[in-house]
């Protein structure tokens, strides 16, 4: 790709101080994550609970203040903006939240929910806004008379469509989707994914997709970042990640997901125990304590992302060497 990225994240870091009972400790939720998002593409951030994926979403949109790092949105340094200048970026950067039940104000009618971003970010008059609201409802496949409803009168899928329509209202360049289908049934999930794909094709919006649902990630993302305990352990195109996962954590994650495939034998790469506490992590690779492939060196230094080929990189010297030999 020769164009410049619409969103660029460099060395993003978020520490939390934990006080109380004894000495002060530090929880590093996101530990130096970098990625670029180009216009019209989908970058997925996957990982399990505690991996820091939602914290990244909140830091990029400045709903949470990161400890350090840089976020550039279409040339604007997002993290350097003052509180007064910040709201202007939400014309270009919007977010769709996981739980549409709690992210929509229960006392606002659908049309007011959609009117709010238009009033804040555009100079449209009342009639033009009403026309835009009707257009937004159509674009997310909802009937226009839906405008008079309150959120509790909608189904979960309809509420998520309203969440998407709200993000679309200002014609943003980037939408951060935080687990957009996690609370939905599979048939509704399919509809929402189709809708997101269509909107992207029509309007050229870039998505940052935060998800633990590998089926969804596989279908709609161009590039994937795999997170474990605040670090990117592997990144690459969706094809590279799903067809030739290199990092042991990615392999464990992919092989753990249940599939409808008879006659195909599954070799699970099993990790030992559970994800450790992210407080005061020991030196070395974060996975070393659970990894079946770990050797003594893994506990000494934290491996950087090593190139495998193309855009594919993984933070595991053991498997990267093995892939290169093969």
């Amino acid at each position: 790709m020769t164009e410049s990225p619409v969103l660029s994240v460099r060395d993003l870091r978020k520490d939390y101080d934990i006080r109380g009972r004894g000495r002060r400790r530090t929880l590093t939720a996101v530990d130096g994550v970098s990625f670029d998002v180009y216009p019209g593409e989908t970058v997925a951030i996957v990982g399990e609970s505690g991996s820091g994926k939602s914290t990244i979403a909140r830091c990029v949109t400045r709903l949470t203040e990161p400890t350090s790092g840089a976020v550039t949105l279409a040339g604007t340094p997002v993290l350097e903006l003052s509180a007064r200048a910040l709201p202007a970026i939400y014309r270009d950067l919007q977010m769709v939240f996981q739980d549409p039940n709690s992210s929509l104000d229960p006392l606002m009618r659908v049309r007011d929910l959609l009117d709010e971003p238009l009033r804040l970010h555009t100079k449209l008059d009342k009639a033009a806004r009403a026309a835009k609201i009707a257009e937004l409802l159509r674009s997310v496949d909802l009937p226009e008379d839906m405008g008079a409803r309150l959120p509790h009168q909608l189904s979960g899928g309809q509420r998520q469509r309203i969440g998407i329509a709200r993000a679309l209202a200002v014609d943003p360049k980037v939408i951060v989707l935080d687990e957009p289908t996690a609370s939905l049934d599979v048939s509704i999930r399919g509809q929402i994914i189709r809708l997101l794909k269509r909107l992207q094709a029509e309007q050229g919006i870039a998505y940052v997709l935060i998800s633990h649902d590998l089926a969804v990630v596989r279908r709609i993302s161009d590039r994937v970042l795999v997170m474990y305990l605040g670090k990117t352990v592997e990144e690459g195109s969706a094809k590279e990640i799903f067809e030739a996962p290199a990092h042991p954590y990615t392999r464990a994650l992919l092989s753990a997901a249940p599939k409808i495939a008879f006659g195909e034998s599954r070799t699970r790469l099993k990790l030992e125990g559970e994800i450790p506490s992210p407080v005061d992590l020991p030196p070395g690779c974060r996975l070393a304590g659970r990894c079946p492939l770990a050797w003594p060196d893994c506990r000494r230094a934290d491996p950087p992302l090593l190139p495998i080929g193309g855009t594919h990189r993984a933070a595991c010297p053991v498997t990267v060497q093995e892939t290169q030999r093969a």
Partner: peptide, 23 residues
């Protein structure tokens, strides 16, 4: 049932779980 579903709903459910028809 899962490899040769007879009921249209079962078929739809399987297709949706795998997000088959989405490129």
């Amino acid at each position: 049932v899962l490899s040769d579903p007879r009921h249209p709903y079962t078929r739809a459910l399987i297709a949706n779980s795998q997000l088959e028809e989405i490129v």
